[in-house]
């Protein structure tokens, strides 16, 4: 008897949760469906048509020719920027003199909207894979670098003294004290950089290449292949959502302690 009640209760709770998750998305899709079939606009496509086109267009060799290389580029550039940015950031963060010297120049570079580097790098490196990687690195590195500097700079002095007292130095000092203390800021930098990396990947391809995701989407748009264009937009969205979800998973793991500290501080 109690088992039945409990099962009913769990099922009910599950149903409520599902409703919370899917009610609005389903409503929005229905609204879109209704609107796109009712409106005479040439540019609107029904969700059904987009889904069908999506399967047709992207579940083909296109996935290997256009999508995978683009994502690969993005991740390569992003990883390079992450390594370079944190390394440089730690070096600058530890030396107040070097930091003071470099900061105005770095702040200026950070303030340059990264997309303007596209035409520049096209001039300098030409239109090829290294150019795209260089572009992503040069756009992504600034938030990572500046946040790392900020994080390293704000290492707690008491904790630093503790390390000195107990003779913690060298590699262990770097990994247990400096990098871990700075990790909340480093992750914040990496998060901003991820968004910039996606933007740069797409527009570098839209601008001047003959392959890749950005190129394909612009091609569809220029040839007025509207359902195909929509499917490309959806794919970009999915890539963005996937990368961001992965990032959150990593971040949650890395910053578990930080969230714990914060929660403890709030409860006080």
């Amino acid at each position: 008897m109690t088992l039945v009640i409990r099962t009913v209760r769990i099922t009910r709770r599950g149903a409520v949760r599902l409703t919370q998750l899917f009610l609005l998305p389903v409503l929005l899709i229905l609204l879109w469906w209704w609107y796109s079939s009712a409106s005479a606009s040439y540019y609107m496509t029904t969700p059904g048509e987009i889904a069908a086109t999506f399967v047709e267009v992207w579940f083909s060799e296109r996935f290997f020719v256009d999508v995978l290389p683009s994502v690969g580029l993005l991740l390569t550039g992003y990883a390079l920027a992450a390594v370079l940015g944190t390394t440089l950031g730690v070096v600058l963060g530890l030396s107040s003199r070097m930091r003071a010297t470099a900061e105005p120049v770095l702040e200026f570079f950070r303030a340059i909207p990264p997309p303007v580097l596209v035409p520049l790098l096209m001039l300098l490196v030409g239109v090829n894979t290294p150019m795209k990687v260089a572009l992503i690195v040069s756009g992504c590195i600034w938030p990572i670098l500046l946040n790392t500097i900020e994080g390293v700079r704000s290492v707690d002095p008491v904790l630093a003294d503790t390390c000195r007292c107990y003779g913690v130095r060298g590699r262990r000092w770097l990994t247990t004290l400096v990098l871990r203390s700075a990790s909340p800021q480093i992750m914040a930098g990496l998060r901003q950089a991820l968004a910039i990396a996606i933007i740069l990947m797409v527009i570098s391809e839209m601008f001047a290449t003959t392959s890749g995701l950005g190129f394909s989407i612009v091609q569809f748009q220029r040839s007025f292949a509207i359902p195909e264009m929509w499917s490309g937009i959806v794919l970009l969205g999915l890539i963005g959502v996937t990368l961001s979800t992965l990032f959150v998973q990593v971040e949650r793991r890395v910053l578990r302690w930080y969230d714990g500290v914060r929660a403890a501080a709030r409860d006080e």
Partner: peptide
Amino acid sequence: TGPPRDMSVVFQEYGRSLFSWL
């Protein structure tokens, strides 16, 4: 001349002298 090896120190700010990530 530097922190001696056979000495340990307990600071006032316990919250800040412990590694939150350990």
